[in-house]
Deep mutational scan, measured.
Amino acid sequence: TTVHLNGVTYTFPNPEEARKFVEKLAKTLNLKVEVHNGTYHIE
């Protein structure tokens, strides 16, 4: 599972880890999250 954040790409072997990371980040920084083909894009 891949996460794109400010031009940096993070790869998680575990989709659940990626989801938790994204949710925590989005909540902390009040960001918008979009998912395209299983890839998270955070703005």
Rank of each mutant, 00 (worst) to 15 (best):
T1M: 08
T1W: 08
T1K: 07
T1E: 04
T1A: 10
T1Q: 07
T1L: 07
T1H: 07
T1S: 12
T1P: 06
T2G: 06
T2D: 12
T2L: 14
T2I: 14
T2K: 15
T2N: 12
T2Q: 14
T2R: 14
V3P: 00
V3K: 00
V3Q: 00
V3C: 04
V3G: 00
H4K: 12
H4G: 02
H4E: 08
H4W: 14
L5T: 03
L5W: 15
L5P: 00
L5K: 02
L5R: 02
L5V: 14
L5I: 13
L5D: 02
N6V: 05
N6L: 11
N6T: 04
N6S: 08
N6D: 10
G7W: 05
G7T: 05
G7V: 02
G7P: 01
G7M: 05
G7N: 08
V8A: 09
V8S: 08
V8L: 09
V8E: 07
V8K: 12
V8Y: 11
V8C: 15
V8M: 10
T9S: 11
T9Q: 13
T9E: 11
Y10C: 07
Y10T: 03
Y10Q: 02
Y10A: 02
Y10W: 11
T11M: 12
T11P: 05
T11V: 13
T11I: 12
T11N: 10
T11G: 05
T11E: 11
F12Q: 00
F12H: 00
F12N: 00
F12L: 03
F12W: 02
P13W: 08
P13C: 12
P13G: 09
P13D: 10
P13M: 10
P13Y: 08
P13Q: 10
N14Y: 06
N14P: 00
N14R: 06
N14M: 04
N14T: 11
N14W: 04
P15L: 10
P15V: 08
P15K: 09
E16T: 10
E16Y: 09
E16V: 08
E16N: 08
E16K: 07
E16D: 12
E16I: 09
E16Q: 10
E17D: 12
E17S: 13
E17Q: 11
E17L: 14
E17V: 11
E17R: 09
E17W: 09
E17F: 08
A18G: 03
A18W: 02
A18Q: 01
A18T: 05
A18I: 03
A18N: 00
A18K: 01
R19S: 06
R19I: 09
R19K: 12
R19L: 12
K20G: 05
K20W: 08
K20V: 09
K20A: 12
K20P: 00
K20L: 11
K20E: 11
K20T: 09
K20Q: 11
K20H: 09
F21A: 02
F21H: 01
F21V: 01
F21R: 00
F21K: 00
F21P: 00
F21L: 03
F21M: 03
V22K: 00
V22E: 01
V22G: 01
V22D: 00
V22S: 02
V22C: 08
E23C: 07
E23G: 02
E23M: 06
E23A: 06
K24L: 14
K24T: 14
K24W: 15
K24I: 13
K24E: 15
K24A: 14
K24H: 14
K24R: 13
L25G: 00
L25W: 08
L25I: 10
L25N: 02
L25T: 03
L25K: 01
L25H: 03
L25D: 00
L25C: 06
L25A: 04
A26K: 13
A26Y: 04
A26E: 11
A26S: 12
K27E: 15
K27V: 11
K27A: 15
K27C: 14
K27D: 12
K27T: 13
K27R: 08
T28W: 14
T28N: 12
T28Q: 13
L29H: 15
L29S: 08
L29M: 12
L29D: 09
L29V: 07
N30C: 10
N30I: 08
N30R: 03
N30A: 07
N30V: 08
N30M: 06
L31A: 09
L31S: 03
L31G: 05
L31W: 05
L31I: 14
L31K: 02
K32S: 06
K32Q: 06
K32M: 05
K32T: 08
K32C: 07
K32W: 05
V33I: 14
V33N: 01
V33A: 03
V33L: 04
V33S: 01
V33R: 00
E34G: 04
E34L: 09
E34T: 15
E34W: 14
E34A: 09
E34D: 06
E34M: 11
V35G: 02
V35P: 02
V35A: 03
V35D: 04
V35C: 10
V35F: 15
H36L: 13
H36V: 15
H36F: 10
H36Q: 07
H36Y: 10
H36P: 01
N37W: 03
N37H: 06
N37L: 04
N37Y: 04
N37D: 12
N37R: 03
N37A: 04
N37I: 02
G38S: 03
G38H: 05
G38F: 03
G38R: 01
T39D: 15
T39K: 06
T39F: 05
T39R: 06
T39N: 15
T39C: 06
T39L: 05
Y40W: 14
Y40P: 03
Y40G: 03
Y40V: 07
Y40L: 09
Y40M: 07
Y40N: 02
Y40C: 05
H41Y: 15
H41N: 05
H41P: 03
H41M: 08
H41Q: 04
H41K: 04
I42M: 06
I42K: 02
I42P: 03
E43F: 15
E43Q: 13
E43R: 08
E43D: 07
E43K: 11
E43I: 15
E43G: 07
E43P: 02
E43S: 14
E43A: 10
